[in-house]
């Protein structure tokens, strides 16, 4: 019976497919799905971080009410959005610019590649500590340079303790540290673009700007998507540099959502509250990811 042959084949194929999926699925379930549901359950209790002599109790949505009525939470949310909306376009375009610069064939281009990528390889904690030294006021290196080039007219500024300067300072140092990552992804994207396209366009009389605008940018479409989504998620996870440099200050101007969760869970030892904030954080990131996905889909059509 020839009609049954494909069905059994399909059966075997799908069994093989499930078999190959199984290890990854198991790990995903154990490390992502289960913890998420645990976090959701914990968010409905008064669970404490460390053992205590009294039992944990269900507290309903009390933790959610506490998070949502806490002005510090809203401030952290605003700060995180501001940071993300700045960092995503800026870091992506600088990353692309650097990638374009070092994508050319010249002697020692891999040395530049290494130099630009270096800050990204150095752990953020160390980068932040080095910047804390550079940003000292009034006698730090950066204030010194500003004073020199402005003939004593500008500064000194207390970069990390000034309500309006602290966040932009964190943004700048984060860009400096992270931009190598975007650069490397763009570099890979650039090297996938066939050279013939540029040659053909040259013959047609296209100038450099037209080459970039009509060939490089459109052909990097998939790279843009990767960079956009990863940079957004990385930006939302803002924590280390804030914790090291400002601890969320001054007046909460640099507090981030992840730091809010960290403080709730580790400093205040309120796992329940931290879990509630994490669930809210997850929903926000999910909403943004869905939005981006939707935009990319409609763009494709």
């Amino acid at each position: 019976m020839p009609s049954q042959q494909p069905a059994s084949l399909r059966n075997i194929e799908s069994r093989a497919a499930w078999g190959m999926l199984a290890p990854a699925m198991t790990l995903l379930i154990i490390f992502i799905v289960v913890p998420f549901f645990l976090a959701f359950l914990l968010s409905l209790t008064n669970e404490r971080l460390i053992p205590r002599p009294i039992p944990t109790k269900w507290t309903g949505i009390r933790n959610y009410i506490r998070v949502l009525t806490d002005p510090d939470f809203w401030q952290a949310l605003r700060n995180t959005f501001w940071f993300t909306f700045f960092i995503v376009p800026v870091q992506s375009s600088i990353g692309l610019g650097l990638a374009l610069l070092i994508n050319r064939q010249f002697k020692g281009n891999h040395i530049f590649r290494g130099i630009y990528f270096l800050p990204t390889v150095v752990p953020m904690v160390m980068v932040a500590i080095i910047w804390a030294g550079l940003l000292q006021a009034p006698e730090g290196v950066i204030n010194g340079i500003l004073r020199q080039i402005s003939f004593d007219q500008i500064g000194p500024y207390d970069w990390l303790h000034h309500e309006w300067l602290a966040m932009p300072t964190i943004m700048l140092m984060s860009t400096w540290q992270g931009v190598g990552f975007q650069m490397i992804i763009y570099l890979a994207g650039l090297q996938n673009i066939p050279k013939e396209l540029y040659e053909a366009a040259r013959i047609d009389g296209a100038n450099l700007w037209q080459l970039f605008w009509f060939i490089t940018l459109p052909l990097l479409r998939n790279t843009h998507i990767v960079v956009l989504i990863t940079t957004t998620i990385l930006a939302f996870k803002l924590f280390t540099q804030v914790e090291v440099l400002t601890q969320g200050g001054p007046l909460g101007a640099t507090n981030s959502l992840v730091r809010y969760i960290y403080v709730a869970g580790f400093q205040y030892q309120k796992v329940g509250l931290a879990a509630a904030a994490s669930v809210i954080f997850f929903l926000i990131v999910l909403a943004i990811a869905l939005c981006q996905h939707h935009l990319i889909q409609t763009d494709k059509d």
């Binding site: 309500e163 601890q247 200050g249 001054p250 007046l251 909460g252 403080v263 205040y268």
Partner: peptide, 14 residues
């Protein structure tokens, strides 16, 4: 922890 945070904010002009 919360007192230190309050002091921090008060020093910054809160």
């Amino acid at each position: 922890s919360v007192y230190a945070e309050a002091v921090d904010h008060i020093l910054a002009g809160g």
